[in-house]
Amino acid sequence: MIWLRSLVFNLLFFGITAVVGIIAIPTLLLPSGAALRVTRLWAQLVILALRISVGVRVEVRGWENLPPGGVVIAAKHQSAFDTIIWLSLLEKPAYVMKKELLAIPVYGWHARNAGMIPVDREGGGPALRGMLRAATAAVAAGAQVVIFPEGTRTPVGQRVAYQPGVVAIAAGTGAPVVPVATDSGRVWGRRHFLKRPGVIRIAILPPLPAGLNRARMLESLQSQIEETTDRLMAEPQFG
């Protein structure tokens, strides 16, 4: 049954992506606000399909911890779900994403037009400066910059060293840094076809204190996210 429900979801996912992506091509000629509305619609439809086909509910805790205006959201990354959900939740998201993703036809066009922030991992100093300029402009425009400090999806139960890009963005923009934990990998595993019914919990934590040096910020960010993720993982999957 889980296999069949997962198949239904995947068919819906690719169908929604194709239809919305093609229909929305004319918005590429419009300002970025139109592209953001399209990506939000796409994400909301995917989350709805996940609930209907598989039986997944999403529970967000700590909304009161998210300051208004420009902010940096440093989010745990266990699943592809994490790259979708913030598009549906935030008013003005700007993801930090691999430059290669922007080369994907249709998807990349919309992502670029919606103001996503490309990063070239092999580009060295010039690439980092370009990312910081884009992030600074996004924060100044009131966007919520979403970055996954692990740098890649991390399987449930594993830990990796956090990448310093998040503290570079924090220092360059002066924006509050908000840690976010999740247990999404229990439902939607890393590179897994099967999607399991249950509750995906997202915990938005208080912003990190101002004035931390880079090493202390990265250490505090990782400890808060990982410890909260462990607590979420210990909760019953259904609730």
Rank of each mutant, 00 (worst) to 15 (best):
K76N: 13
P67E: 03
I147V: 14
A94R: 12
I204V: 13
L50Y: 03
E219M: 08
V56D: 01
I73D: 04
W188K: 00
E227H: 14
P105D: 07
A49T: 03
A80Q: 09
E150L: 12
S53I: 03
E219I: 00
V177W: 13
P209A: 05
V54Q: 08
G142V: 11
G33H: 02
G211T: 05
L212A: 09
R57H: 07
D120T: 05
G115S: 12
Q222N: 06
L29Y: 14
G142Y: 15
A80C: 02
E226I: 10
R216F: 05
A215N: 04
I52C: 07
V139A: 09
A161T: 12
P176A: 01
P209E: 01
L41I: 12
R153G: 01
V20D: 09
S223W: 03
A103N: 11
R129S: 02
D230H: 15
P236N: 02
T173K: 01
T136W: 07
V139E: 01
L48I: 03
E226Y: 05
E91L: 10
F81N: 10
F9A: 03
R57S: 15
Q222E: 07
G21L: 11
R190C: 12
E150D: 12
P26M: 04
F81K: 05
M1F: 06
L132M: 15
F13R: 01
V96T: 00
V145T: 05
S223M: 13
A103Y: 14
L205K: 12
F238Y: 10
L128F: 01
G165E: 09
T154G: 02
A171M: 00
P26F: 11
L28K: 14
A143D: 13
G189D: 01
G165I: 03
I47A: 00
E122D: 04
R190A: 07
G69V: 06
A203R: 11
E235V: 02
V20R: 11
E150R: 10
L128S: 13
I47P: 00
V54L: 12
I202A: 03
G108P: 09
E100R: 10
R186H: 05
A137H: 12
P207A: 05
V71H: 00
A234I: 06
G165C: 03
P155V: 08
T173S: 08
V160W: 13
V139I: 15
A127Q: 07
A35R: 05
R159E: 12
E226D: 13
V119I: 15
V139R: 05
R231C: 08
V180G: 01
A127S: 14
I117K: 06
A170V: 04
W42D: 10
G62A: 02
T154L: 08
T83N: 11
G108Y: 07
A203Y: 06
S53H: 06
H192A: 10
E150P: 15
G108Q: 04
A18H: 03
I85G: 03
I225H: 02
V145L: 11
G165P: 00
G165Y: 06
L208D: 05
A74G: 00
A140W: 11
L132S: 09
L66T: 04
A127H: 08
L87I: 01
V156N: 02
R159M: 01
I104K: 13
T173I: 04
R191H: 14
G157A: 02
T39W: 08
R201L: 05
A103G: 04
R153C: 02
N213W: 03
L102D: 09
L194H: 01
E100M: 14
V145N: 04
I73R: 06
V187W: 09
R231F: 10
